[in-house]
């Protein structure tokens, strides 16, 4: 078992624009990028959830520095930067839509909900009007600017996580087989379960590959790396990947930002090699103090153990 602690904070001042067109279509623009972590999905999910729409109703425009400012993708800060900015813009749009609907439904905006692509009267759901009906005839697209808030100043906050690994060690060959990994993380609100789980799988697979196989071998005489290819620099293959069970605490902390969410970039990578190393120690009674824990190193560790009186 090994644990992790990592800021997972976003960047205050991150911007996003949400635009509603007179045909009812919704677009979000943000100068972020999706490096494979699901940013595009998260933007759609946050905007759709706030406006009572489905994620596929939102057209997401990212990957262009002409769009409203967003930080680099790194340090587990993309989702907790971009998400709250999108949420801020979408909340403003929701207020605007409620204002339009309040005239048509003849009721105060506070009594109106956004759900199922409609603006619905809280007290009488039979009274409703479709979002695209409310915006029909708008003379121009309406733009809503969102900005990510400051961090709380009175307390510190982190992500927390713990990984548990089950391994099998062949003490005759020094080969380690990881059988199962269970990973639990508290990253605040989970914006999208599939991309969050995928991020955890990725962190564990990277950590397993680094922990067991990946080794940059430098040659002191020529000063070059002798294994700069995917044949000699070994990475895990599909057969090396164990059963992985991701668990999320999913505790929403509204004091952090308007989504109560934290980042999940690094967290699953941080304890993944260490959990395996500790499981190996638990299995063979001796620490392998260096990764990758290759058969040669495991056999050497077992010899150290035998040598002890």
């Amino acid at each position: 078992m090994a644990s992790q602690i990592w800021p997972g904070a976003g960047v205050p001042g991150t911007l996003a624009d949400l635009r509603i067109y007179s045909d009812g279509s919704v677009e979000v623009e943000c100068g972020t990028q999706d490096i494979g972590t699901g940013t595009r999905t998260h933007i759609a999910v946050v905007a759709a959830d706030t406006l009572g729409l489905e994620p596929q109703d939102i057209s997401v425009k990212i990957g262009n520095s002409d769009y409203p400012w967003a930080p680099i993708s790194g340090g587990s800060l993309t989702t907790p930067s971009v998400g709250p900015a999108v949420r801020d813009a979408a909340l403003k749009a929701a207020e605007y839509l409620k204002g339009l609907a309040s005239k048509k439904l003849n009721t105060p905006p506070a009594d109106i909900l956004l759900e199922n692509k409609k603006l619905v009267l809280k007290t009488d759901p039979s009274k409703a009007i479709e979002i695209r009906e409310v915006v029909r005839g708008l003379p121009r697209p309406m733009v809503f600017h969102g900005e990510r808030s400051e961090h709380p100043s009175t307390f510190a906050f982190q992500t927390f996580g713990a990984h548990f690994a089950e391994v099998e060690v062949d003490t005759e060959t020094g080969k380690i087989k990881v059988k199962k990994v269970v990973a639990a993380h508290d990253v605040g609100r989970v914006i999208n379960r599939q991309t969050a789980e995928s991020q955890v799988l990725g962190g564990i697979i990277q950590g397993l590959s680094a922990g067991l196989f990946e080794e940059k071998l430098m040659d002191p005489e020529t000063g070059t790396m002798v294994n700069p290819n995917l044949h000699d620099y070994k990475i895990a293959t599909a057969l090396d990947i164990p059963e992985i069970i991701p668990i999320f605490a999913d505790v929403v902390d509204d004091r952090l930002n308007n989504l109560g969410t934290k980042g999940l970039g690094e967290p699953p990578r941080i304890p993944s090699s260490a959990a395996i190393a500790n499981a190996v120690y638990n299995a063979i009674g001796v620490h392998v103090r260096e990764i990758p824990m290759t058969p040669a190193k495991v056999l050497a560790a077992l010899k150290r153990k035998e040598a002890k009186p």
């Binding site: 071998l217 040659d219 005489e221 020529t222 002798v226 290759t294």
Partner: peptide, 28 residues
């Protein structure tokens, strides 16, 4: 598959050079 043999920049004994780079180099 020796990594010195497979590195075109290294002229080892197998490629007409004078020595085996693995002998005192990286040889796991």
């Amino acid at each position: 598959r020796c990594w010195y043999y497979r590195d075109a920049r290294v002229v080892c004994s197998k490629k007409g050079g004078s020595k085996c780079y693995a002998e005192k180099g990286r040889n796991k």
